[in-house]
Amino acid sequence: MAEDIKVKLEKYRTAPFDARFPNSNQTRNCWANYLDFHRCQKALDAKGIDTAPCEWYRRVFKSLCPMSWVQKWDDQRGEGTFAGKI
């Protein structure tokens, strides 16, 4: 399984189609992948497991989200004012 993820990450170019977000506006897709990345990291860190599988979500949100949004959300998480549930 880990080898499958490594192969997919090596071949990664841009975010693939996600049937949950069929419209051209990808704002919700960006938000969902940002949250999924941090939830994945939190869950795997708590179990003491390698967080490499979470890298997929990071790459997707990095390709979809404007960096200004990501920076703002990171700042909000640091301040404890982030609106999402991680």
Rank of each mutant, 00 (worst) to 15 (best):
E3H: 12
D4L: 06
D4V: 00
I5L: 06
I5Q: 00
K6S: 06
K6G: 00
V7W: 11
V7F: 05
K8H: 08
L9Q: 08
Y12H: 03
Y12D: 00
T14M: 10
T14K: 14
T14Q: 14
T14V: 11
A15M: 06
A15H: 07
F17P: 01
D18W: 06
D18N: 14
D18T: 02
R20K: 14
R20L: 11
F21M: 07
S24N: 11
S24I: 04
N25D: 15
T27R: 08
T27G: 02
N29F: 13
C30I: 02
A32N: 15
A32T: 08
N33H: 13
L35Q: 13
L35R: 08
F37D: 13
R39S: 08
C40M: 06
K42Q: 14
K42N: 15
K42V: 01
A43S: 14
L44V: 02
D45V: 01
A46F: 03
A46D: 10
K47G: 02
G48P: 05
G48I: 00
I49Y: 09
T51N: 12
T51H: 04
A52T: 13
A52H: 10
A52F: 14
C54E: 10
C54R: 01
E55V: 03
E55A: 07
W56V: 12
W56S: 04
Y57F: 13
R58H: 13
R58E: 14
R59E: 00
R59I: 01
R59V: 00
V60S: 06
L64W: 05
C65Q: 02
M67W: 07
M67L: 12
S68K: 14
W69M: 10
W69Y: 09
V70Q: 05
V70Y: 04
Q71R: 15
Q71F: 12
K72R: 14
K72W: 10
W73F: 12
W73H: 08
D74C: 02
G80L: 14
T81N: 14
F82G: 07
A83I: 09
K85T: 09
K85N: 14
I86M: 11
